[in-house]
């Protein structure tokens, strides 16, 4: 049996959706461990005090904000090429989760930026890129909700996701070009690989894993909901047809 058979809506509801509760449990465990360890059992940073501990929320949410879009891109491609309905609905289900991850990353970034850099917001390339990503999520979600025909909506949002990905990537580099142009390379961003000391690394990885599992759990659950909505619509349409025929 091939992997694609799980793209069948009913099989997804039978086999995959029940996994969401295990995913939620695993995510909860990882988040409790990673965040608990990170918040309470790591030393304060020498220069920054305890404010640095927000990285346990900031970095994983930022990571998932980008990964969610990548997942939507892959799911859209699968829909466009292989016409698996579950794939299109998974992309639809992932978008609001990705948007929330982006908002968490922006909010925690602002809260962290205040004590670190003395400002809530700076038009730093990385911050700006996330703001742009936020706009792309909004447009994608709005297009899904505006098109009444489900299949047309899946097609059009799929095309938008492909084109949007190209432009999002382009914006990422454009923003670098723009910000360096104005500030002569005076970037406020931290290079995380070098600045995250070993003591913080392990709990951070666990928190990242927790966010990834949480994302997976939410997407599976929401995809199941979307499938049920489509099923309700299909059953209604059939009932109307048999009424009309009788």
């Amino acid at each position: 049996m091939s992997l694609w058979s799980y793209a069948n809506p009913r099989k997804f509801l039978d086999r995959v959706e029940p996994l969401s509760r295990w995913l939620f449990a695993a995510a909860g465990a990882c988040l409790a461990l990673g965040l608990g360890w990170g918040f309470f059992f790591t030393p304060d940073a020498v220069n920054f005090g305890s404010s640095v501990k927000i990285i346990y929320l900031h970095v994983p949410s930022a990571l998932m904000a980008i990964n969610a879009w990548l997942m939507m891109l892959v799911a859209s491609l699968i829909w466009i090429v292989r016409r698996h309905h579950v794939s299109a609905l998974a992309a639809k289900a992932a978008a609001p989760v990705g948007l929330v991850m982006t908002l968490i990353a922006l909010a925690t970034g602002a809260i962290w930026g205040q004590p670190m850099w003395g400002t809530w917001w700076a038009w730093d390339p990385r911050l700006t890129s996330f703001l742009i990503l936020c706009l792309f999520y909004l447009g994608y979600i709005a297009l899904w909700s505006a098109i009444p025909d489900a299949e047309a909506a899946a097609d059009l949002t799929g095309v938008l996701c492909l084109v949007g990905s190209v432009f999002a990537l382009l914006s990422r580099y454009a923003v670098n070009f723009w910000s360096q142009g104005l500030h002569q390379g005076a970037s406020l961003s931290l290079d995380r690989q070098e600045n995250v000391a070993d003591v913080y690394w392990l709990p951070l990885v666990i928190a990242m894993l927790g966010f990834a599992l949480l994302f997976a759990a939410l997407v599976v659950l929401r995809t199941g909901t979307e499938i049920r909505l489509r099923r309700i619509a299909a059953l209604r349409a059939r009932a109307q047809r048999s009424e009309g025929a009788a």
Binding site: H85, A233, A234, A245
Partner: peptide, 13 residues
């Protein structure tokens, strides 16, 4: 030629 109810191809049924 009206499509019969059984032949509904909706993948969500």
């Amino acid at each position: 030629f009206r499509a019969r109810a059984e032949t509904l191809t909706d993948p969500f049924l």
